[in-house]
Design a protein around this nucleic acid. Sequence first.
DNA 1: CATCGCTATATTATCAAATATATAACGATG
DNA 2: CATCGTTATATATTTGATAATATAGCGATG
Lengths: 122, 122
Amino acid sequence: MRPVKIKIQFPMDGDIAMGPGKAQLLAAIHQHGSISAAAKSMHMSYKRAWDLVSVMNAGFKCPLVMTSVGGSHGGGAIVTEFGFKVLQHYQALQIKTEVFVLSESADLRELLVNKSESDPVS
Amino acid sequence: MRPVKIKIQFPMDGDIAMGPGKAQLLAAIHQHGSISAAAKSMHMSYKRAWDLVSVMNAGFKCPLVMTSVGGSHGGGAIVTEFGFKVLQHYQALQIKTEVFVLSESADLRELLVNKSESDPVS
DNA sequence: CATCGCTATATTATCAAATATATAACGATG
DNA sequence: CATCGTTATATATTTGATAATATAGCGATG
């Protein structure tokens, strides 16, 4: 496990408009083309995925995901250009922050017990 | 609520050695001089507080909290010098990271719906 | 016009996590 | 040496979050 875990959330009303879970789901929808397939790939119930999409769409100025119902393949969902932009922003922010915190927390991490440091500094 | 919520955790084995909740508890113990009083002040059960202290102490090279049992006042708990140092490091890190993320997420936050912006820019 | 897989939604069931409760031991002090 | 509030620990209970289940409706397509 990484030495530090960072969770960045953007609260909106009572919900979280964007966070690690939603970002991951967004990426999965983009990859699979439907909420149901994305949910399955993440071992998440369809209902939960649908709820998350609903919250995301409500929290931003434009929808991140557009769904279509019916049709030969039953319908599907696509990540909008806007949604993709949000996703990229979020992912970049997450990485930048991780780098920042890792560097800023060196002193603190020094104080933790060193577990399984199989680091043969010969 | 703040526009962004950041949670920094330091995992250790299966537990979290330090996180927002533990930092807050540490501060409360320092203030009140006992685990039980600190727990009460945070509306937390004594058991939970005691468990958190136990995890904290196990995760660092030195104990952050030392307890004494019995005595005229029943006992108590004090935050060690080491624990206080950890607390200060953590709190400083939290603030620095908040500033960082807030500045780095300006573009993203621009895309959120503006809720209740009672901002009379006359 | 029957079929298909998906969206959309509600209801119920399950489970883990937090809390509540209980109790023993501790030891300085008056 | 009885008292006190606390630590320390175990067990029971409650709660909330999550998952499971069910079902209706959609509409392009062959």
